[in-house]
Amino acid sequence: MDKNEWMRELRHLYGAGILFFYYAKWPILLGLPAMYYGLDYPHNVVLDILWVWSLVLVLKDLYVWFILKESYCESGRCKTEKKERKNDGGDNTEDESS
């Protein structure tokens, strides 16, 4: 295999990982403790690693949502963008007369 084939395969694995954790992080984060303590499921190191990784991803999402969004809106950018989008010359302008 040459370098381009390896890079293509790494991109496929990266994309699969993004899709997997996008949909599976909350079920893993909430379901694994329920399986361990509620259903007496035997502990598994691989699932523990997936749980820790899911926890890190959820904490990152919460940080981005609450901290960065708040600082973005405090700078005044989110309010001005709404005003600019409102009158962007599209189909639904307010000054249109019938």
Rank of each mutant, 00 (worst) to 15 (best):
53 W>N: 08
65 W>C: 01
63 Y>V: 03
33 P>K: 09
52 V>I: 14
67 I>P: 00
49 I>S: 05
70 E>H: 12
44 N>I: 04
37 Y>H: 08
46 V>I: 14
44 N>G: 03
21 F>I: 04
47 L>I: 05
35 M>F: 09
63 Y>P: 00
43 H>A: 15
68 L>N: 11
51 W>F: 11
48 D>Y: 07
65 W>V: 00
27 P>F: 06
70 E>V: 10
23 Y>W: 10
22 Y>D: 00
67 I>D: 02
63 Y>I: 04
37 Y>F: 15
25 K>T: 08
30 L>K: 10
61 D>P: 03
24 A>G: 02
53 W>F: 15
50 L>A: 13
42 P>G: 04
67 I>A: 12
24 A>I: 03
48 D>Q: 05
52 V>K: 07
62 L>W: 12
68 L>T: 05
72 Y>C: 07
43 H>C: 08
68 L>E: 11
44 N>R: 07
71 S>F: 03
51 W>Q: 02
36 Y>L: 15
42 P>H: 04
54 S>K: 02
67 I>Q: 05
61 D>S: 09
52 V>C: 12
56 V>H: 00
65 W>H: 13
51 W>S: 02
24 A>L: 09
22 Y>N: 03
22 Y>G: 04
71 S>N: 03
67 I>M: 08
65 W>A: 14
31 G>D: 12
21 F>S: 05
32 L>W: 15
55 L>G: 05
69 K>V: 04
34 A>M: 13
56 V>I: 15
20 F>D: 06
42 P>F: 01
24 A>S: 13
60 K>C: 14
46 V>P: 00
53 W>G: 09
42 P>I: 02
69 K>F: 04
26 W>F: 15
36 Y>S: 01
30 L>G: 15
66 F>W: 07
66 F>Q: 01
21 F>L: 13
56 V>L: 09
46 V>H: 00
70 E>A: 13
50 L>P: 02
44 N>V: 08
25 K>I: 11
49 I>R: 10
29 L>R: 11
66 F>S: 00
42 P>D: 03
40 D>W: 06
33 P>T: 13
30 L>M: 11
37 Y>T: 03
28 I>N: 04
25 K>Y: 05
44 N>A: 07
55 L>E: 03
33 P>E: 11
26 W>G: 08
57 L>Y: 08
20 F>N: 14
46 V>W: 01
33 P>V: 10
32 L>Y: 15
69 K>Y: 01
37 Y>N: 04
36 Y>P: 01
36 Y>T: 06
64 V>M: 01
20 F>R: 14
47 L>H: 00
65 W>Y: 12
21 F>M: 15
55 L>T: 05
23 Y>H: 08
21 F>W: 08
23 Y>S: 11
